[in-house]
Design a protein around this nucleic acid. Sequence first.
RNA 1: GGCGCGGUACCCAAGUGGUAAGGGAGAGGUCUGCAAAACCUUUAUGCGUCGGUUCGAUUCCGACCCGCGCCUCCA
Length: 486
Amino acid sequence: MPLHLYNTLSGKVEEFAPSQDNTVRMYACGPTVYDYGHIGNFRTFVAVDILRRFLRQSGHKLQHVMNITDVDDKIIRNAARDKKTVQEYTRKYEEAFLEDMGSLNLERPERLVRATEHIPAMAEFIAALEKKGFAYRTEDGSYYFRIAMFPEYGKLSKKDFGGMETGARVDVDEYEKDNARDFALWKSPKEGEAFWESSIGPGRPGWHIECSVMSMKYLGDSFDLHAGGEDLTFPHHENEIAQSEALTGKIFSRHWMHVRFLLVEGEKMSKSAGNFFTLRDLLVKGHKPSSIRFLLTSVPYRKQLNFTMAGLEQAAKSVERLRTFAARMRMMRLPAGTNPAAQEAAAKARREMRAGMEDDLNTAYASAAVFDMVREMNTLADHGELREGDKAPSLEVLELFDEIFAVMKDDDADKMKAAMEWAREHGLVGEAAKTISDEEVNRLIEERNAAKKARDFARSDALRKQLADGGIVLEDTKDGTRWKRK
RNA sequence: GGCGCGGUACCCAAGUGGUAAGGGAGAGGUCUGCAAAACCUUUAUGCGUCGGUUCGAUUCCGACCCGCGCCUCCA
């Protein structure tokens, strides 16, 4: 079974496959770097990451382009306010974004491209549109796209713009435009704000043109998939289609994927509602990046996800269950051989996980398949029915799972520590709690085991308490002591 | 108003025309020096409400109620 994905353009779930070379050419709208990324941004980026990881697991090659929008009205305004260049202003947020991607185990797209480095190409693109009659220049030197020339306008967002004709009398509030719906391709310079010189005059690019130009430059006139948050469907993506298809006469992107917004504590996230969280806010508050990633993946991308602190706790426990199981499998000493029941449990999990992902990236179903296996293996292990040869297949299932979900590796502590250091540098928090090094942990565990052996339980419990105070949780098993960071 | 999505146990959530996955939480139990982990049992005759189609509907159709999103360069 191949992957089936919902396509906003057709409004249906369709089989998805790259059109050439087994390489998926995809473009995802990236961040506008005017601030730190928030949890809503990251739901979209995590969903795209899940897609790309699953495509690769399915044997496809990837050519994934993501833009960094480092020029827009807000950036230009803020940069002017702070008396900085646009580049100075955006660079720190761009770096922060890349760091945040790392925290959430988001893979780097094959290409990350900055809008400001493609301005000449944008100007040329606009000039070509003007030549074909799809764009016009207004008196102040701005350029607009003439929607009336593109009858398919609205096909992505399913909006009806019928009856809009060139010169038709509409309620125009911006008198310079031919039609109120015409959108800006290029904006003439404003007093005191940054602008670029170009072949079509001075100014700055509109938002939509950036994505058309960069996607086509690196992926060709037509490519396989374009993704973004649901709010981008209209007008952003609709406008990209109009610009690109007007120019080339070819299909722009064959497939459109839109990720639904998340809610925070049941409400739309907004600064005024007090439920606005950047990724950094959460890390500094002590939430693990793996919990955040797991919560973000736990609800399929087309469903609204209610992001709550309780949900974060639950996600943390779910991840812990999987990690504990993996550790148990690795440590357990078992008799040689295999158990057919265990072999089948692993095979089934593998099948079901794949089936779930192929069904429009049903991450909830896929992870349920893994949890099913975990329970069955644990039961067999408890009953002494697991064999040495059963470990590898179950660990392989976890590896396949983690190629996509990427939450198994316990590197949360390091990432959180980095976030705390950042927060401290920015005066957002006081001193971080002391952490115990791995070496120290192992030394204390040895000391405790010696105490246990001597049946000095008071001493051993004191040592465990000491470790617990440092956030280290111990588990004694017959094959030795396991530990993890809380 | 236009377009669209959703309402499943205490919470999150999958799913199907034939009788409710998974995770978390709660309760009881097993194991263990204690703990942790793990396992077992248990928690929806019920899937927003009311009708209809059907041998049979949570799943299809209709109406209604509730929540939410986009339509404002907010992912």
